[in-house]
């Protein structure tokens, strides 16, 4: 598969801060690639390096085999959907969409035709004459998308495009974006701080932290096989165990991560299920410290030893008894050995 975008040891500094620190990565053509991380982790700067709004201080950015280092944005065949949409307030919707074609000298008839086509693609055909201020957030978002796609870019960059939308609209747009990406076959580079968004849409996800990539993997691997404590904590929630307890459980000195939903809780003294005899199951006593009702599930915090707690997540059903778990109860927590993931040594929490 061809490489659409490649970073070679790319760095970008702002003063003393290394916003992007020697990042190397390859994004395949036609891939839905996400950059995930907290704010200030360098994901947006990476996107701006591809767009050309930032230039690397060190290293190279290669787009479709061509070194784009030093190339201004208007000479790159990539387009961006901005976080604030950045629609031109003095132009109507059709002129906004046709802008890229207009400045490239496409004749009026063709650009009107293509702009109308792009508008239909995002299902806003009848809104062409409106000004951006007369549209809702979700509609502006689609116009921004149409304005970028009408130029037929080879790479589409999306800078937290769904951040300003409410939950329902966001979920709907996630589906639409994914559908458009499959249909057009364009490489999508999607920046987000929302891990569910990244997991549900992407082919691969790069998790950023402090200007570096912590892990670059498929969503499934990212969730089930986090390599660092940061990834384990940022993608979903995780229990990370260190030190003597980790040593005792795995026989290695490395920290361990266990997902809360893989931990089950029994009351002390209740019958041990027959399969617990298996050495594959880990059993530890503890005391419930806190119970949080979260809708579809309940989060239960169990103190294993002073200062060491572990969170378990139990799915709720109509039959579950909400008084079954109370703070102060002595319980047994258990999980399968396979649920434990060893983290890299250099991981910091």
């Amino acid at each position: 598969m061809n490489t659409a975008v490649e970073f070679c040891q790319t760095s970008r500094c702002f003063g003393d801060v290394r916003a992007v620190d020697q990042v190397s990565l390859k994004i395949a053509e036609g891939e839905f690639f996400s950059m995930l991380g907290p704010s200030g982790s360098g994901k947006t700067t990476c996107l701006r390096l591809i767009a050309g709004f930032e230039q690397p201080d060190d290293g190279h950015v290669i787009i479709h085999g061509r070194d784009a280092t030093g190339l201004p944005p208007y000479q790159r065949n990539v387009n961006t959907v901005f976080q604030d949409y950045a629609l031109f307030p003095h132009m109507n919707v059709l002129d906004n969409i046709a802008y890229g074609l207009m400045v490239k000298g496409v004749n009026k008839k063709e650009r009107q035709h293509r702009a109308a086509e792009a508008l239909d693609m995002v299902a806003l055909g009848q809104y062409g004459q409106r000004k951006p201020a007369q549209l809702s957030g979700g509609q502006r978002q689609r116009i921004a998308l149409a304005r970028a796609l009408v130029n037929r870019p080879r790479v589409l960059l999306l800078d937290e495009p769904l951040g300003a939308l409410d939950l329902k609209l966001r979920e709907q747009m996630q589906g639409e974006l994914k559908r458009l990406q499959r249909q057009l076959g364009i490489t999508f580079v999607f920046v987000t701080h929302d891990q569910t968004e990244a997991l549900s849409m992407s082919d691969r996800v790069a998790v950023f932290n402090q200007g570096r990539i912590e892990q670059l993997d498929s969503p499934r691997n990212l969730y089930n096989q986090p390599q660092t404590a940061f990834v384990a904590g940022f993608v979903g929630s995780s229990n990370v165990l260190h030190g003597a307890l980790a040593q005792q459980l795995s026989g290695k000195s490395a920290a361990l991560a266990i997902r809360p939903e893989y931990i089950s809780i029994r009351h002390s003294g209740s019958a041990v299920p027959s399969d617990t005899a298996s050495t594959e199951l880990i059993n530890l006593p503890g005391v419930i410290k806190d119970v949080q009702y979260q809708g579809s599930n309940t989060r239960i915090e169990v103190e294993l030893e002073p200062g060491v707690s572990i969170a378990a997540s139990e799915a709720n059903s109509l039959l579950s008894n909400h008084t079954a778990r109370l703070p102060g109860q002595s319980v047994q927590v258990s999980w399968s050995r396979q649920a434990m993931v060893s983290l890299r040594d250099n991981a910091s929490v």
């Binding site: 944005p73 208007y74 961006t80 976080q83 604030d84 031109f88 003095h90």
Partner: peptide
Amino acid sequence: PPSLLQASSDLGATPFKTFRHVILPL
């Protein structure tokens, strides 16, 4: 907003065209 100028440049407008079509009208 600076993002408008970036958007113009991103869509292929040279600095002069950005001035002519975005900065000046606004």
